[in-house]
Design a protein around this nucleic acid. Sequence first.
RNA 1: CGAGGUGUAGCGCAGUUGGCUAGCGCGCCUGCUUUGGGAGCAGGAUGUCGGGGGUUCAAGUCCCUUCACCUCGACCA
Length: 569
Amino acid sequence: MKLGNLVGERFKERPSDCVIDSHALMVRGAYIKFVASGIYSSFAPLKRIFHKIEAIVREEMDKIDGQEVSLPVVLPASLWEASGRCASVGQELVRFADRNKAPYLLGMTHEEAAVQLVRESALSYTAYPFMIYQIQTKFRDEARPRAGLIRVREFTMKDAYSFHTSQKDLDRFYGKCYQAYQKIYERVGLPEVIAVASGAGIMGGDISHEFMLLSAAGEDSIVICQSCQYKANMEVAENIVENQKDELSYPLTQVYTPDVQTIDDLCSFFETTPDRLCKAVAYRKESDQGIVVLLLRGDYEVNEAKLKSKLGCEIRPAEIDDKSGLAAGYIGPYQLNASSDVFFDRSLENTCNLICGANKANYHYSGLDISRDIGDIGYIDVAKAVDGGICPGCGSHLLSVSRGIELGNIFQLGTKYTRSMGMTYLDENGQQQYPIMGCYGIGIGRLAACICEARHDAFGPIWPMAIAPWQVHLCAVRADNIEVKTLADRIYSELTNRSIEVIYDDRKVSAGVMFSDADLLGVPLRVIISPRNIKENKCEVVSRDKTLSLKIDMDQCVETVIGYVRNGK
RNA sequence: CGAGGUGUAGCGCAGUUGGCUAGCGCGCCUGCUUUGGGAGCAGGAUGUCGGGGGUUCAAGUCCCUUCACCUCGACCA
């Protein structure tokens, strides 16, 4: 198509509310148009990118025997009541009533709808296994959309659901899907995406992986071992601490510490380091409003995700008042008010001579030896893994913590949904069984944004050939020159006739404008027809990533370009 | 939900202790000149100053209220 007809205004100034580059470039290049917080319309270039990504996703899903289906966006609330999620999921689920006041909701994930679709169609074990998938709009009323297309409320997602008659078969398929995902990220131009072990979140289930692009703009923390294959989301990363007890355990001694509350203050007061402190953090459980006190070594942070899953309920930081019986800033394990649940983190195992709060204002203890002073207690793992920490996989001290953007996930769901929704089949022995499920998601828009985030320069995105909105950007520099125009028109129609996707710029604008717009559109191959080139009977073929720049004879132009396109240049 | 910030033309912004017809750059339209990295000159169009209420002779500016958006946190497949 001709660039002059492409609707959408490109401009050079960076929009003030864009924090990350992919967002700024997508606005500047007229890929997206803001509609409301976390809600965008897409212009043609982005829609074309979506089509290509979706085509790749479809191919890879079909290769592992996926069947594309379509599930509704609007679902009756009763479907989610059956699984229990109507109650368990919070405000991100949009609920509304139809004209008859019947409750409905907007699908944010489709396990229930998937089970509902196939429930009566797979009554015999011979129907298994199978996988259904769809590519569809989801709506999640996120508390805080951000970063352009990275975190939005309305988005397109490929979601897939597989059904199996044994854990072994689910394991097998899970592995195939894992590989299919890696293939997808490779094909769309992000081979550096890694898989990390993750938590279940609202999906429920056991084993799960997230596919992550390491990026400073990421919202997740990822723990990676530099020496083995261990990779995990911070939410589930095990934290291992190996302490050596001092030879001498000093007696527990109360010390007057006026107005010394923070870790920093304590360290300077006692002239010591945070690892010699026993820190206390208090939470309130949402389930019964009970207080939980967590004790951990002063140089570690609480991993609230791990704590939540240990407690099995939501938590929030406890506001410490008089009623709680806790002395804010001076909480310690020794003679702690017994009305709280108390947990000791692993980081305190095998320690002595610690400093801790004395449970009364302005006093601390020194010389704490937990096994001597508190007794024989169990330790749990609720601290955040740290840079340089011990790897649970290989035991090296080579853990590093990075930021990452989640580009997809795969879950083993077990029978949570089939059981709650009464989906059964008869096995070889005529026994009624619940199928075991897996589910697999990829956000299409977020993937496009991440490709832009990972593949751009100061002037615009550098789209990989496989997903670029067009394959070739044809520039007729000085289109007012009849010779240029005639030649460029001819090249355009020849390339188009050979099924090459060409965006053709024959506007009567200066070269600067033309090239800047081309940079913003990020098309991988650029062909330049200009009076200067025509004089030598040449045309120019350059790549957006600047790795290729050649002048070739005009009559070889079409073949050369087609060659590069086919090679995925 | 907590804390902070911003709303003035399509975009980026200025607008002082309230004061005349609300400006600048980019973009847009017309004409002429230019033409290999966002051209020059001349002319032109475009504003409920986020909304509502108030104070005042007078409000973009002060007060109250409300909405939207952004950032950090909380939350989150």
